[in-house]
């Protein structure tokens, strides 16, 4: 069963301020990453998106604890040079689990989508990134081909798709918001 997790972070002032703070890398990086990291804010933001995306998959699999980024290790296939890279791929490790990610870097944000299997083996999925904070019927139609859907969240903050009638639909859903950007990924038919 393919599960996905996504995370988007804007490359705006507030995130740079947070991830430039002394002590931020200590809270975010694993022991392995601490040895190899250049500790730049953009690198920390990228690693954070990877870890949060993987954490969302873990949550769907029943993980109960809060997000602890230093427990995850991100390994890129090729060490990224952020001034040049537009796409980074690789793996995220947590205990004995491995997740597979692709990060896309734009002028405005870093977006990471992770799966619990290699991307090429993942069930066909639909993704959208758009410049608004709301989720409307048209956006969900564009992702699913179905009308009158809504995204709701469980008490553990895990998103799911339901019909307006209340029927819970058999889709895996991941949502991320940061400032004005929203990213949604939907995998049909679990």
């Amino acid at each position: 069963m393919t599960l996905c997790g996504n995370d988007i972070m804007t490359l705006h002032t507030e995130n740079f301020r947070t991830f430039s703070r002394p002590g931020a890398s200590r809270l975010i990086l694993s022991d392995t990453e601490k040895k190899e990291s250049k500790n730049t804010a953009i690198e920390l933001i990228w690693r954070w998106t990877c870890k949060e995306a993987a954490f969302k998959i873990l949550m769907k699999a029943g993980h109960q604890e809060a997000f602890s980024p230093s427990q995850f290790s991100v390994v890129a296939k090729i060490p990224p040079i952020f001034e040049e890279e537009k796409t980074i791929t690789g793996s995220i490790f947590w205990e004995n689990k491995r997740f597979f990610f692709q990060s896309d870097i734009s002028q405005d944000y870093i977006y990471t989508l992770a799966f619990n299997c290699p991307k090429e083996k993942a069930t066909k999925y639909s993704s959208i990134i758009y410049n608004e904070t709301s989720i409307n019927l048209d956006i969900l139609y564009s992702l699913t081909g179905r009308n009158y859907l809504a995204i709701q969240k469980t008490s553990r903050n895990i998103p799911y798709l339901s019909a307006i009638s209340g029927e819970i639909l058999n889709y895996d859903v991941s949502i991320s918001n940061d400032e004005e950007f929203t990213a949604i990924t939907i995998i049909p038919g679990l």
Partner: peptide, 28 residues
């Protein structure tokens, strides 16, 4: 926003002059 938890933990460390172990974050 989950990224702001980093700020909150660092602010707590500064205010109370303590260091919160990175592995303790998942308890908060």
């Amino acid at each position: 926003n989950s990224a702001r938890v980093v700020d909150i933990v660092l602010d707590i460390e500064e205010k109370y002059d303590i260091e919160i172990d990175d592995k303790s974050i998942n308890k908060i």
